[in-house]
Design a protein around this nucleic acid. Structure first.
Length: 396
DNA sequence: ACTAAATAAGCCGAGCTGTT
DNA sequence: AACAGCTCGGCTTATTTAGT
């Protein structure tokens, strides 16, 4: 159980007086501090559906004691590490600001191209990294705690849960000076009996993507599960679950998508249980047709945990039966030849465990980078499965 | 209100990879 | 081995924001 400090008073999480204090503390924007470590770790109070929760500040999971329920493994082991502080900036109120590497508007084609002017200005290095679309999807998944799993959650996570988690994550986040929740569209679970209300909420949510006729088109970001892709008269039609209309994609981008996400599509087609998650910037034309501008994808298993190879899926399958929590590491902007932690087991005793999978045919550089990564986090017990050496080793 | 600086989006070229 | 296509980074220009 967690113990909190509010002001100079100490409370047990479950105590009646603490639960009674929460609404007032929320009202006055008081910040609880978790006493699992000294000095206590700053947290915040969130209100969800009229209930109050003490939540950790974004990306502060590593500051908690490994035994604390708010503990999360350090993000340096996943693709999140290089982005924190640059593309992902966290302020004191627990809100994060993202820098995006994709357009959120579509401007009309440039009227005239001006000849490049002679310029002797010193070149300004743009060293700030930005989030790709895939990294944005991984960010939402991680912040929504959809990378976490324990066996007791079996059967309890469906698209409704996923959607709520994603929207919660977005509500803490800004990008390009706007709230991410206003830019993000995630289709609601469709129920026939609630058809009209859902349609009304949907069209309200999609207002930001609607073409106004003049000026640059503003785009929105959609996250949804792909149902199927079919050829259209021109380009392709992507049908998404819980959405009554398809997203159109032109032939060129469609080809690129297939080449880029060949592995993902292959994994998706090879297994009926898994889901293909799409993230795309899109706009809606005056005639009401939704068209994709940019797109990225990832494959998740039946528990909505992302994976990138059959080996990882096997590992997740084994871990899904464990009562203790497992946390999936994600790649964000990193390419496939960078090692990242596959899964961490934060609740493992005596120390948290980092599970790595070395893909067959990994280079020496890969092994070297992996060794460095393991060395840099001595508090984590490493577990390595080298696929080329055979079967999965025994889990810790 | 005007100017300067920061930011966003699109274009272009260098380098890499995969194919023929 | 050459070529084509794609990706990534840098540069340019437009637009927004902040400061005077």
């Amino acid at each position: 159980m967690r113990r909190f400090l509010i002001g100079d008073r100490s409370f047990d999480e479950d105590s009646v007086e603490f639960q009674a204090l929460l609404p007032r503390a929320y009202e006055h924007k008081l910040r609880p501090h978790c006493r699992c470590k000294e000095p206590a770790v700053a947290m915040y109070i969130a209100r969800l559906d009229g209930q109050y929760f003490v939540k950790r500040m974004p990306l502060s999971g590593r500051d908690h004691d490994p035994a604390c329920s708010s503990y999360e493994p350090p993000y340096e082991l996943s693709g999140l590490g290089p982005l924190v502080g640059n593309a992902i900036q966290i302020d004191a109120n627990g809100r994060t600001a993202l820098k995006l590497d994709f357009s959120m508007t579509k401007r009309s084609p440039r009227a005239a191209l001006s000849l490049p002017t002679e310029s002797s200005e010193p070149a300004i290095r743009n060293e700030t990294k930005k989030l790709s679309l895939r990294a944005m999807l991984h960010y939402l998944w991680e912040m929504g705690e959809l990378t976490e799993w324990r066996s007791s959650w079996a059967g309890k996570r469906g698209w409704g849960r996923v959607r709520t988690s994603l929207m919660n994550a977005a509500s803490q986040t800004t990008a390009r000076g706007a709230h991410l929740s206003e830019m993000l569209f995630v289709p609601e679970v469709f129920h026939q009996e609630d058809k009209e209300a859902i349609a009304a909420r949907r069209s309200a949510a999609l207002a930001g993507a609607q073409a106004s006729g003049t000026g640059p088109r503003t785009l929105m970001i959609a996250v949804a599960e792909v149902k199927e892709c079919t050829a259209a008269r021109e380009g392709h039609r992507i049908t998404l679950r819980h959405l009554p209309f398809p997203f159109m994609i032109e032939e060129g981008p469609w080809k690129r998508l297939n080449a880029r996400y060949e592995t993902e599509l292959e994994l998706w087609r090879s297994n009926e249980e898994c889901h293909l998650i799409l993230i795309a910037t899109f706009g809606i034309s005056v005639s009401g047709v939704a068209a994709v501008e940019e797109v990225a994808m990832m494959v998740v298993n039946e528990d909505w945990i992302p994976f990138e190879s059959v080996h990882e899926r096997h590992l997740l399958e084994r871990l899904a039966r464990l009562r203790r929590k497992s946390v999936k590491g994600l790649r964000f902007n990193l390419s496939r030849d960078h090692p990242i932690v596959s899964v961490t087991l934060p609740e493992q005793r005596p120390s948290p465990v980092a599970l790595f999978i070395v893909p067959p045919g990994a280079s020496e550089d890969y092994e070297r980078a992996l060794a460095e990564m393991i060395e840099s986090r001595p508090e984590m017990t490493p577990w390595v499965w080298r696929v080329s050496e055979g079967e999965m080793p025994r889990l810790p």
